[in-house]
Amino acid sequence: MSCLHIKHLTVTFETLMGTVVAVDDVSFDHESKETLALVGETGCGKSVIASSILKLLPDNANLSGEILYGDKDLLRLSERELADIRGQEISIIFQNPTLALNPVYRIGDQISELFRVHKRASSKKSKAYATSLLGRMGFKDPEHAFHMYPSQFSEGMNQRVLIALALALHPKIIIADEPTKGLDDQLKEEILKELMKIKEEKESSLFLITHDFDAARNIADRVALMYCGQIVEIALSPDFFDEPFHPYARGLLKSLPSHDFAPIPGASPSMISPPEGCRFHPRCAERLEVCSHEMPEPIKKSGRIIRCFLYR
């Protein structure tokens, strides 16, 4: 059962430099209770997909396509309808926790707010909820943590707060945009473990955006790989890491320190005027004649979805 169908999502930004095509005809399903990892190099459009799902993009963004959640198209809901879904049914964890929290409100109040907004809970009740939530997130003295401000917490502690907030109302979908960025390895592991534990408990699905292939391998059920605004391969995690299909996926895995450490030749393409044909063709060692002037469409192949002429 899938809980989110994304169909032909395209997102462009009008900028002074020209039109940026950040997401280009992306379609995928997100199954309930699964962990789907979205990977890809920086600037390829991962965060824009995440923000599109909750319609959190700035005014200069143009969206087209459909994002179906149940029988609703999230892109066509009013702000009021969206507000009911945000934080309650679909929650998001940003990659920059200290900046995501309001510097002049106590941590506890920022958590309580969620119960007050969505559950119309009294201030006493929401305070009790918030305190118990802090306790569950591993704060030794939750009463004390309640009264702290984000600036008095470390990055890791704030990240825990964001996770607590994301899980508080048992959402159907949790979007986590690089939740472990900038944390040290031990903390990374701890945070991911915590996230997974509660996710399992609450039976939520997790849409995890990450640069960290190890994390994706360890916790994701499926992996989606993005290149230059497009999803080029979606496969079950073991399949993807054992035998990647797409030439870009193969190149990426080879460039990892645990493999050959051999970087993909060439530079990341411009998002304003991407290459004609297959976006990856200027850097592809296996390109065919057709690749430079025709764009491959995504096709199903042995349980995967792949965008490459080699698998036609």
Partner: peptide, 12 residues
């Protein structure tokens, strides 16, 4: 970012 996050929490 905290403004965007407030929106993501479901505030109007």
């Amino acid at each position: 970012l905290y403004i965007l996050y407030a929106r993501a929490k479901g505030l109007l």
